[in-house]
Amino acid sequence: MHEKIVELQTLREALEKDISKADSPDSIEEVRVRYIGRKGSIADLFKQIGRVEPQIRGEFGKTLNSLKQFATAEIERKVKDLEQQETVAGVDPTLPPRPVAQGSYHPITLIEREVKRIFSRMGFAVMRGPEVEDVWHNFDALNTPEWHPSRDASDTLYLADVPDMLLRTETSPVQIRTMQAQKPPIRIVAPGRVFRNDKPDATHSPMFTQVEGLYVDKGVTFSDLKGTVLQFYRHLLGKNVVTRFRPHFFPFTEPSAEVDVSCPFCGGNGCRVCKQSGWIEVGGSGMVDPNVLETVGIDPEVYTGWAFGLGVERMTMLLYGVDDIRLFYENDIRFLQQFGGRR
């Protein structure tokens, strides 16, 4: 290789070294002046082109040109790097995060949505109904006997000035309203607030949240109920939980069952949460009573159905370890903001 070309290569190497050594605006400016300034070494070389032997002049000129372009771009890049370095230099990355106005969902909403989401995947629609209900939807249509204690004013809150109106005691009236409005197949979940005449304490609230599911169609069986409820709780509480069904009495269903879920915290071995029993009672269920179907004009000989319910507060308390139900309605921001995370 011609010595003139080698000279250019040597210069390029020296340039690269100088650029990488430069560590301040001043030193890179010095590099810039020295190489590509008007009296810099590259300008000098351009002046020498005429004196280079003709056979390599072309190559020399080309190489020198690209060296100049290279020097200009590299120095410019380094200048920007050093500028940014300076900006960042004064920054303390350990400063606390700035406060962000972070909102939060109420924990009851979070669990209610979780329930809605799971049922939605199973083809259930969400239905809601009025919190102020009439006696017919809340009791009569649900096959509640005239004498049933739940009708007493000691259990149920009635309106003072409007006859036969009450604060609904469960979300089941939504099932009645839905079955009145449409024909099977019906698959709904009905979340909502319900009311009981209970003195508030750590485990009782006169208002709480329920979700009830209803499925009415031809060929719906108790076996389906067991399957759906199991799948639901496996999605809510983890794939290893199991359910069991205990006979019970509810006016609305027959056969009726209480549902227990194996404790998701100890795997059913017994712990503080399940009071050492390994099981947690989570709600009622059963096959919709033929009287109820008849009341809403669905032939119980053709259609069968099941219904089940769960208390959202109870589930939320269980899952988050909330030990006083009153916290849910006190709305202390120190409580609420604990539920501001995203999933």
Binding site: V126, T178, I186, G227
Partner: peptide
């Protein structure tokens, strides 16, 4: 009573 493995899924209602 056996626990049904899968229930017949139909999209019956819309929210």
């Amino acid at each position: 009573v056996p626990t049904a493995e899968e229930s017949h899924v139909v999209l019956s209602n819309e929210d």
